[in-house]
Nucleic acid binder design. Structure first.
Length: 137
DNA sequence: GCCAACGTTGGC
DNA sequence: GCCAACGTTGGC
């Protein structure tokens, strides 16, 4: 199965891409939304993930990868939701701003644009290529 | 099982 | 700070 691609959001105040680079890897927990949880469960080891800064920055700033597939979220006492583990791959040469993404015809159907509150969303191969091209390769 | 009220996310 | 989107909760 070819690797799939995803996008995760994080408020840089809480956990930024620089934090991920500093830590080397992190447990991506705290997701409490069923749609987002389904996407977490669908992730495979080695899948690559766009790392987006919400609230502040409003841009995709880096690429991460899945290093551990879904397991019970240790921060969820009810045991209903899952977490994965992510590691940094590389910071983008140039962040890709939300405004640019909205303006790009290639990204018109992108899940994160269509449903802005979704914290974990799928990215198609074409969208992935387009975002990285906008980031300067 | 419906739906109004409420809470949260996230862009502006 | 405001508001739209949308998920969840709880009364009926």
């Amino acid at each position: 199965m070819p690797a799939a691609h995803w996008l995760v959001k994080s408020e840089p105040n809480t956990y930024s891409y620089a934090d991920l680079e500093r830590d080397g890897h992190t447990v991506w927990d705290g997701v409490r939304n069923n749609a987002a949880a389904l996407h977490l469960k669908a992730m495979s080891e080695g899948d690559e993930v766009l790392f987006y800064h919400s609230q502040e920055g409003l841009a995709v700033v880096g690429v991460a990868k899945v290093v551990r597939t879904a397991f019970l979220d240790p921060s969820d006492p009810a045991g209903r939701f899952v977490a994965v583990e992510l590691a940094p791959v590389r910071a983008l040469k140039r962040p890709v701003a939300l405004a640019e993404m909205k303006a790009a015809p290639a990204l018109a159907g992108m899940a994160m644009l269509r449903q802005s509150r979704l914290s974990v969303s799928p990215v198609t191969a074409a969208e992935w290529t387009a975002v990285l091209a906008m980031a300067g390769g």
